[in-house]
Simulated assay, not measured.
Amino acid sequence: MGKPDARTRLNVVNDHQPARDFNLAERLAQTPILTPLDYDRDGKQDGFLRLYYSGETNGYGYVPIPVICISNGEGPTALLFGGNHGNEYEGIVGLMSLARELEVSDVRGRVIIMPSLNYPAVMAGTRASPLDGANLNRSFPGSPSGSPTQVLAHYVSTVLVPLADLVIDLHAGGRSAHFVPCSIVQEARDPHEAAGLAQVAEWFGAPVSFVSVGKGRGGSLTLAGECMRQGVICLTAELGGGETMSPQGLALARDGVTRVLNRIGILPFCDVPAATATRWVRKGPENRLHAHVAGIFEPRVSLGDTVAAGQLAGLIHFHDLPMAQPDEVRFEVSGAVLSLHIPALVGRGDELCTVVSDVG
């Protein structure tokens, strides 16, 4: 892969970069999280952020959140996150592997890697933090005086995101769903930003990509929404699901991230496979198919299938009424199946699958 010229890199990433006049020392003083690393120092550092938390069995201890910073001179800064939800594993493993392999001499600029961002949830194997039951990816911009999850979200929002030119947040379907590996970008504010977001997704090279349209920049809530509120390019990816380890998703976590870092000039000399063309699709609220009754869901389609409006998506069987006919669930729109619910037992309102349609 050839090294892109500086004009290409800067046009895509830096035109909406955050202001660089903020005082890092002041931001660090405003968070209760202790940072043992010096983000401004060249070299390869690894350690643990200290999120102090008074629990039942550890009244005066802290939660250790792994962080790796690799810096070498001038250049862009990338933040790489896995484990935003604790039971989504491809990003966690892919970023740990990348952190071990990268050397200072490989880097131009700075890479900050947090493979297990929501460390309490990762250790518990849960989507939300066991400390407070909160979903980190619905907690931004957070609060320095809130619950542990809110404190962590505040640290990311006020200390880390302002350092960044680019953020990559790696997810999967967790316990609830399987996904066709895909990348997601937020709705842009102008055509130039839209082109930059699309370019990063194409470099990442997921089989499917789409623009997330909805809440984000105003109240933030998600990490991607907070990044866009601050004017920082963010790519989110869904890489598998079922609390398993998808080989395809893991390879995409490694290769996709490395490709993007190469193209923006942070890893200018790395050798990674060329990206395959991504399929741009659209997804809105109307593309989500939900259960309107509770029961046992029997899908009649598979991931990636092409489906038509009115086609049978599956049956919901009433396990408490064995002689009752199952409820038929039919697709409301045509397209391709992007995700499927995993647990067979569903409740009213559960999302059963998502259907996407091609852009254009």
Rank of each mutant, 00 (worst) to 15 (best):
T306R: 10
A277L: 07
F269A: 14
A294C: 01
G304N: 10
Q311A: 14
H290D: 00
G284L: 04
L312A: 11
W280T: 03
H292G: 07
A308L: 13
H290W: 03
L315S: 01
I296L: 15
T276W: 08
C270K: 04
P322H: 07
A313G: 15
H317S: 04
F318A: 12
E298S: 15
D271K: 08
N287H: 14
T278F: 09
P273C: 02
C270N: 05
P285T: 07
V272D: 00
N287E: 11
R288Y: 05
W280A: 05
A309C: 01
G295S: 07
R282S: 14
L321F: 09
L289I: 15
A274F: 04
E298H: 15
V293W: 05
H319N: 14
V301T: 07
L321I: 09
F297Q: 08
H319T: 06
V307I: 10
A291Q: 01
A309I: 00
H317M: 13
E298W: 15
K283G: 03
L321H: 09
K283E: 05
E286M: 10
V307D: 03
G314T: 08
T278G: 06
R279V: 09
L321A: 10
L315W: 06
A291K: 00
I316D: 12
L289S: 10
A291Y: 00
E298D: 15
L303E: 02
D271S: 05
G314Q: 08
K283L: 12
L303M: 09
I316K: 10
A294P: 00
G304T: 06
I316T: 06
A291R: 00
A291M: 00
A277Q: 08
A308D: 12
A309W: 02
A277F: 01
G310T: 00
E286A: 15
H290L: 02
F318E: 03
T276C: 11
G304Q: 08
L321R: 14
I316V: 15
H317Y: 05
A309H: 03
A308T: 13
V272E: 02
